[in-house]
Nucleic acid binder design. Sequence first.
DNA 1: TATGAATGAGCGTTCATTCAT
DNA 2: CATGAATGAACGCTCATTCAT
Lengths: 205, 205, 205, 205
Amino acid sequence: MIAKAKLATKPRKSPSQERSRATVDAIMQASTYILNEVGWGGLNTNAIAERAGVNIASLYQFFPNKQAVIAELQRRHVTSIRADIQHALQNISNQPTLRVALTVIVEMVVKEHQSAPEVHKAISEELPLSQRCKQYDQGEMLKEMVNALLPFMKNVPDPQLATYMVGISIKAIVHQVTNQRPELLNHSSLVDELVTLMERFLIRE
Amino acid sequence: MIAKAKLATKPRKSPSQERSRATVDAIMQASTYILNEVGWGGLNTNAIAERAGVNIASLYQFFPNKQAVIAELQRRHVTSIRADIQHALQNISNQPTLRVALTVIVEMVVKEHQSAPEVHKAISEELPLSQRCKQYDQGEMLKEMVNALLPFMKNVPDPQLATYMVGISIKAIVHQVTNQRPELLNHSSLVDELVTLMERFLIRE
Amino acid sequence: MIAKAKLATKPRKSPSQERSRATVDAIMQASTYILNEVGWGGLNTNAIAERAGVNIASLYQFFPNKQAVIAELQRRHVTSIRADIQHALQNISNQPTLRVALTVIVEMVVKEHQSAPEVHKAISEELPLSQRCKQYDQGEMLKEMVNALLPFMKNVPDPQLATYMVGISIKAIVHQVTNQRPELLNHSSLVDELVTLMERFLIRE
Amino acid sequence: MIAKAKLATKPRKSPSQERSRATVDAIMQASTYILNEVGWGGLNTNAIAERAGVNIASLYQFFPNKQAVIAELQRRHVTSIRADIQHALQNISNQPTLRVALTVIVEMVVKEHQSAPEVHKAISEELPLSQRCKQYDQGEMLKEMVNALLPFMKNVPDPQLATYMVGISIKAIVHQVTNQRPELLNHSSLVDELVTLMERFLIRE
DNA sequence: TATGAATGAGCGTTCATTCAT
DNA sequence: CATGAATGAACGCTCATTCAT
């Protein structure tokens, strides 16, 4: 018997009282802990509740189902970095040179990975892609990035495509480096090289 | 109680007769099917056996546990593309220009994604990273790529790092495009642009 | 592949409400029933839960595994008779003659076998010895028995050994008689003869 | 669902050929090994066959089912010691004194435990009693023992009962000592004391 | 409302036994 | 007939979720 289901992922009620918020926070923290220490296979609602120190029935008073817990986990992470992202993107156009603009972007992505590395790692490495919130990976920033970078480009036949490629590359490289060779992030040469990779691609002379 | 365990993932018995090889093949095929149609969450040994049309106990005569089934799935995929990879890598140095060499590499990666796209997608998008075989993601090809590309580079301060970055970028972009915008692969412009991205990074004049 | 494993046998949760105590009791009762009616081979957790009228998952909320159920079964039986044993042992020294003292002991053992005969039979005949709780067979009472009987002995070269032998004999005879020829227990001659066997061994004139 | 079944326990065919005998022997040896090293819980036909180095289907050509394997194991053990037992029993009446006669019996029982200690331990400690062949525990020797010992008894009100008790005691003590304190068997005092226990019970002056 | 208890459905795995070459 | 393969029926145990106090 093979079946697939879609469930509501909205939190059941907004934690208005302090007590409630603490409970939800504990659930989020516990979920992150388990994802990192045990992995996706160990992430079950009973374990989350136990680790969080809340009763399993309480968990279900704040979340309609397991999916909602996972969704909230991602929503929180996205929210926590969205401000940074927005801020960075808006500043890009004001930068004097492409090099500076790209540096801003790269550093933003790095920051994104370092702000809550466990959460990020848990989400990006343990959650099967089918469990991911659309918003999470999907760069809404793409359009904004295109607009921001367009003025700097020279001889780029398809700016949209180029931006797409640039976005993917930056994310992928920063992600891999963060998880496989974090020591490289300390040497500025990585950021430099990343910026160079993009710069030479977007300005072709 | 939170615990993590590692199990042997080697096949239990290698099928010697043809009948059993068919059984194992059916298991592999069924696993792939389920990963694609239902996702990681629906991949359980009973479902695999049922879909494969074999008894669950037969599955366990050839695989000591579920992990081993998953591992074999990955092993087979890696094996099936390793030949192509080896061949491509050995030919790189013989290419006249960097542009041609890079094109060979990119096309190899594209081929890798297209040879068994469902398997590849299933493994790379559904399997939590902690379930992946080490060999799978690990680019042994990195060293070889460095050697092959080194003669072509100009003004690259850290060829090792550059190659690492190039490798990640190509994989990431081809992967994302394959899964999100497969129509782009038909227009040669993507490959062209990818090659351009790399070429301008490795030859800086 | 041949392997042996030891698992924790401590109860997982102690039932705090009355409802759950009833559940645990039902599980114990069902286990005893199955051991008696079907035997060790039929003692599986699903059957226990079904017979107890509780959900299988409930069973596992109070017992971490099957072993724990079996262990608890034994623990309860031991506990239920320990009081009698203690009481009897403490009274031995106060008896006027060896004959009376031995009678007390024998009657205690008989009582032990009759207090919960099904449980006792199930445990002692169906449980492979490797499944037994250490405490169960282990006579802690040996030391106490030695001390109690010592003053009565005459010409016994090794009182320790003699007590050991006496203990084994009483248990074995009562056990076998209980299970094979229970009608003998009604005739007081058996107890008499048992006492005589011991008396003549411990007082040699 | 609770059910109980009785199956035929006769070997399917007598191993006439040499090859066959070797196979059966290997199966017996493997069963004993597993019983001792893993216990009753690990004794399954697949494991037996694997350990014996024979195909599982071959096992079922010599034994109709698992019960038959177990039965044969016991039958062989009984057979291997029956000669000794018969011999000893027939000699009892010819002994000059009760003390010598009892010594013969005790030494016979000791020998029985030492002749194939693993087999004996496996059968007596791991096999649930419901798996035992009737013949095994059941002393047919009882009647013979009564007859043999009767001439020596003095003032024993119920010789039948006394013999029954004596038989149980000897077996139980030797068994326990063998398994718990084997070092005691070397000191002759144990046998001496055992004989004394019986002697003073059967001759009351 | 917070909590201990409960549960249906199902998953990973085993085992006694039979089939087919 | 010896062997690899196959299988039905369980069994131990878990998990997402709900009930009841």
